[in-house]
């Protein structure tokens, strides 16, 4: 088996004249926490959609969890988890119902769902809230629950799209704890964020500018390369060069 969870070669996506993603190449190792940064409109979302099998690339190759993004997108979907800030859980279902629903989608056996649900609720200290509607939970708890649901079916890779936006500083760190735990059991983490301190928590970080990957390295090396004190500076340095406005 390949040691890489994601392999991307010269991947492009073009909308008419507009190159949303312009010839990007990178690899993500198994169990790695990979930070996928970029300014608004740099092409992050488009790239992520292609990797999740939701959108066909215009050219180039990519494989996710060992499956080809052109031909095997159904297999990709079975082997990944996805969570975004905007859409995650059904607000009008209870915590338990949400878990059951998502686990059911992935065809997990009912008994296993039951056992794992209890284990998960215990781990998140959500036992008392298990039968509460998700809409009644504080945002931070929702996000933690959404992440746990996204990795419930033990995917090889989980894609996180700005998972911590607006979350309080303590919960944000608790959330990252969950990410570390998931990485420790071998789940590959592919995460976007606007918090530059979170970029530091990643093993490696890529920074996208105008559809291209302008930098890719560990946070420490990036700071060295750009002679910057923080990732914030690295990001500002690169993203300021952006020419395109859309």
């Amino acid at each position: 088996m390949n040691k890489n969870a994601i392999v991307v070669n010269n991947l492009s996506k073009q909308f008419g004249q507009f190159k949303a993603v312009d010839d990007i190449s990178f690899e993500v190792a198994k169990g790695e926490i990979f930070g996928f940064l970029g300014a608004n409109g740099a092409g992050k979302t488009t790239a992520m959609k292609m990797l999740c099998g939701l959108s066909m690339p215009t050219s180039g190759q990519a494989s996710v969890a060992g499956f080809d993004v052109y031909k095997e997108n159904e297999s990709i979907k079975k082997n990944i988890g996805y969570m975004s800030q905007k859409f995650s859980l059904y607000e009008d279902l209870t915590v338990r119902e949400n878990i059951k629903f998502y686990a059911g989608i992935y065809g997990i056996a009912p008994q296993k769902i039951k056992d794992k649900t209890n284990q998960l609720l215990q781990q998140l200290v959500l036992e008392k809230e298990a039968d509460m509607l998700v809409s009644q939970l504080p945002l931070g708890w929702k996000q933690k629950l959404a992440f746990s649901v996204a990795i419930f079916h033990e995917p090889q890779i989980v894609f996180l799209d700005e998972p911590t936006g607006g979350v309080d500083p303590i919960t944000r760190r608790e959330f990252w704890n969950l990410i570390y735990d998931a990485a420790a059991i071998g789940i590959t983490i592919f995460v976007t964020t606007h918090y530059m301190d979170e970029a530091e928590y990643c093993n490696r970080v890529s920074i996208m500018v105008d559809g291209k990957i302008e930098a890719l390295d560990s946070p420490g090396n990036l700071k060295k390369t750009f002679n910057a004190k923080s990732m914030d500076e690295v990001f500002l340095h690169l993203a300021r060069k952006a020419k395109r406005i859309e």
Partner: peptide, 13 residues
């Protein structure tokens, strides 16, 4: 009200 939420670091600055 939250003018910079979801906005990248450059635009925020």
């Amino acid at each position: 009200d939250e003018p910079t939420t979801g906005v990248d670091a450059v635009s925020r600055k």
